[in-house]
Simulated scan of single mutants.
Amino acid sequence: MMKTETASAGLDLPPDARIGIIAGGGSLPVEVAAGSAGQGYPPFIVLMEGEADRLPELCRYEHETLALEAIGSLVPLLKHRRITHLVLAGEIKRRPRLTHLRPSLGLLAVIPLVVMALARGDDGLLKVLARGLEARGIKVIGAHEIVPDLVVGEGVLTKAAPQKSDRRDIEAGFAAAKAIGALDIGQAAIAVGGRTIALEGIEGTAGLLDRAKLLRGHGRIAGKTRGVLVKCAKPGQELRADLPSIGPQTVEAAHAAGLAGIAVEAGRSLILESPATLSRANELGLFIVGVAAAEPSDG
């Protein structure tokens, strides 16, 4: 086994650094923006049109809206705003429609990269995008480097703790989540009674939990059977973007699906809106645990 790379704890920024945030949906862009501003680096926010959904909190900073199909103008925009460091934060639910891309000199340079990345899947797209930006002088950094407190540590984070049967579910869920992660399909699985009963697909974790809720409602999962949602980084995960995360909505949905708790990969996962997430888990009696998981070596 080789040592698994973990999200680094913080970042030393030069005094003249200028941080930009590509903001998708959810609370992560808000937390990154607040963390950046709190360190004396007021961010510039690129609001992804139709994706960013926490506009009142994001629009208090300098910002500009950008359509996915106008991605070719991203580099000129960042250069114009003198951005030196860029964070990709939040969920982007759809891909740009290549037939609707707006022509630009910047786009002509990145179209081959985008097409190649789309063929490789989500994580491939993130890696190629990061390399393309850095080749143009903009350093891509992870949300966890701006707000290291978001990274889940190892151990039980809630009042409730996993039982022996839950540990079997966690082991089964991790194995399944790593397997689909290797195929770049998803980052999560649900295990009940020591076996995996549902895998995350394109619908994301919310859709996965909805399916588990339906299965329980239809009697496919015994009413009193416990179960665990497991989330972990993909093998070879691009740690600067798309780290697995949980938040208050995850806790609510896991409870609605009748699960006993949530296990996430320690050091390579994020917990968003942490006080609210842990408080709600405690109110509902769910456990949240960070579990170390090493990746197998290629040899």
Rank of each mutant, 00 (worst) to 15 (best):
63 H>K: 02
50 G>F: 11
91 E>V: 14
34 A>H: 03
64 E>I: 14
27 S>R: 13
47 L>F: 02
79 K>F: 00
22 I>N: 01
86 L>N: 07
16 D>T: 13
55 L>S: 06
43 P>S: 10
28 L>Q: 09
48 M>W: 02
82 R>S: 11
32 V>P: 02
23 A>N: 06
12 D>P: 00
89 A>S: 15
76 P>S: 10
88 L>R: 12
17 A>P: 06
31 E>H: 07
19 I>H: 06
69 E>F: 05
79 K>W: 04
55 L>K: 08
57 E>H: 10
63 H>M: 03
77 L>E: 13
67 A>G: 14
20 G>M: 04
35 G>L: 07
29 P>L: 06
35 G>A: 13
40 G>E: 12
81 R>D: 12
54 R>H: 14
37 A>I: 00
50 G>W: 14
72 G>D: 15
33 A>C: 04
32 V>A: 03
89 A>W: 11
60 R>F: 00
74 L>R: 02
16 D>L: 05
21 I>V: 15
43 P>H: 09
31 E>L: 11
12 D>K: 09
90 G>V: 13
37 A>V: 04
20 G>S: 04
33 A>L: 08
83 I>W: 02
65 T>N: 00
19 I>N: 08
32 V>L: 05
13 L>M: 13
79 K>G: 02
70 A>C: 13
64 E>L: 15
28 L>V: 07
32 V>G: 03
63 H>A: 04
64 E>P: 00
68 L>E: 11
33 A>V: 05
35 G>D: 09
17 A>V: 10
65 T>F: 07
72 G>W: 04
31 E>G: 11
28 L>C: 11
21 I>Y: 07
68 L>M: 14
41 Y>K: 03
45 I>D: 04
55 L>V: 12
57 E>C: 00
